[in-house]
Design a protein around this nucleic acid. Sequence first.
DNA 1: TATTGTTATACTCTATAACTATA
DNA 2: TATAGTTATAGAGTATAACAATA
Lengths: 147, 147
Amino acid sequence: MDEDIKQSLKLFIVLSRAHKAITEQTNQFFQASGVNPTEFAVLELLYHKGKQPLQKIGGKILLASGSITYVIDKLEKRGYITRVNSPSDRRITYAEISESGKEFMAEIFPEHEKKLHELTEALSSEEKDQAIELMKKLGLSIKDLSY
Amino acid sequence: MDEDIKQSLKLFIVLSRAHKAITEQTNQFFQASGVNPTEFAVLELLYHKGKQPLQKIGGKILLASGSITYVIDKLEKRGYITRVNSPSDRRITYAEISESGKEFMAEIFPEHEKKLHELTEALSSEEKDQAIELMKKLGLSIKDLSY
DNA sequence: TATTGTTATACTCTATAACTATA
DNA sequence: TATAGTTATAGAGTATAACAATA
């Protein structure tokens, strides 16, 4: 039992280190591309899932409404997204990725993927499948616990 | 090859989610205990490895020297650590955990471990060993890459 | 000259609360 | 009344640069 607890701590430590090692690299890449991780997350959402109400973006990225306004303002000033009014409910504003934003993502997203591929090449394809299963199981179980 | 790239992206996503799910819980625990993750990291270092030069702490936790001063000031004000001069090199200041800091860690560290154990109980002991091996391999390989 | 730690300063990100407008 | 988004404000945390003390 005591060994089990140490094992769980160990898992947390190696998981954290692996995550940190990867995100240090990706964040550096984001920064070199002129966006921060939050902005990239918003752009990725809009790029892959289409336009979204600001409220919903806040829900996915876990940001308060005032903070969303701030992030969306920045992306809009940079020309990567536009605000679009909802015709059916005039309280709602959508954020939609612009042509310029699409070009930006079309350029950096494949690089991001490629970088991730290189960063994880220590694992074979089989090991990655194993790791995916284990991390999925772990992540999902905790999401369930948090209610 | 294209599938391999998608697989790597998938691994990054599930790894990030699992990590986020866990750290959300641990950070909440830290906050309830009155410290932030950085402060906990410093305390843990001093608790388990003994006193350290401020410079070295900054290296481990990845903080600039000015930021270290800020963090150490906070912990010192709370009475969890003390500054100790080095007799051999008068430029150096050690941070050392105080009795009060030890008591604090003696109380919360086992809780932290227990919490981690509960959070990871979706995985069997064998699965955890697998996950530990995979994450270790991944994390170490990236550290090697970053030189 | 180089290194350690401090000070002063500024910036980024996020949260909170009060507000407007719409429903 | 409740919801969506904005504005104004504040705070935490971090970085940078200039500095003093020491090596």
